[in-house]
């Protein structure tokens, strides 16, 4: 019974990933990617790692995907974008991802009813994860903090060039305007 739930979730993850890869439209691809991540979260839950499942939903399907969607929304500015978005809301675009997500939700409900439906027979609580992280693996947390620092500094430096460029362009445009005004005055 539990095994079949696992295989179903894995199947959904695979199907959603393939669909995500084959979509021509980035937003549709993202929706399938979210479904795929949700399926992975269900697998984690079935394996007895509810904490990892929650993190998967919160961080991957939540935070990172929202960032992706923001970027894509910013790229689709203008009235034509609104018209397109209205078109995307037609059922044939959301019915398949919705169906897949509904199956996953059903799986979660079944798993919850069977009480900590762990395939491995062992639940890993958040407390156990924390004890490991700040016990034997405390140095891993420290090294990871340095890794994040490197990523942050690198992203700041590489992103800064675009900020600097827009500022320069604005200054340039202001100068041009001033010059035009000066020309117009006499």
């Amino acid at each position: 019974m539990m095994e079949s739930l696992f295989y179903l979730a894995s199947f959904i993850a695979l199907v959603a990933t393939v669909l995500a890869l084959s979509r021509a439209n980035a937003t549709h691809a993202l929706i399938y990617l979210i479904v795929s991540l949700l399926a992975v979260a269900v697998i984690f839950f079935l394996l007895g790692a509810p904490f990892a499942a929650a993190l998967e939903v919160l961080i991957y399907a939540g935070a990172i995907m929202v960032l992706f969607i923001f970027v894509i929304m910013m790229l689709n500015l203008g009235d034509s974008g609104v018209a397109k978005e209205r078109q995307w809301l037609s059922p044939r675009y959301w019915i398949v991802p919705g169906l897949l997500a509904a199956i996953l939700f059903g799986e979660m409900l079944v798993a919850l009813q069977h009480h900590s439906a762990a395939l491995s027979g062992k639940m890993i609580s958040p407390k156990a994860v924390a004890l490991e992280l700040f016990g034997p693996y405390v140095l891993a947390v420290e090294i990871a903090s340095m890794l994040l620092l490197a990523g942050l500094v690198g992203a700041y430096h590489l992103g800064r060039r675009f900020l600097a460029r827009t500022e320069m362009e604005e200054e340039l445009q202001e100068e041009l305007k001033e010059q035009e005004q000066q020309r117009a005055q006499p």
Binding site: L139, M146, L147, A150, G154, H157
Partner: peptide
């Protein structure tokens, strides 16, 4: 620092972290 962590590594976890620290800093460099 990433390279030095790799020299110390005795665990697949520190291996990956050290390697990523080394390469993430290198991308920006």
């Amino acid at each position: 620092l990433g390279a030095c962590v790799l020299a110390y590594a005795e665990h697949l976890g520190s291996l990956i972290l050290g390697m990523e620290l080394l390469s993430v800093a290198l991308y920006a460099l």
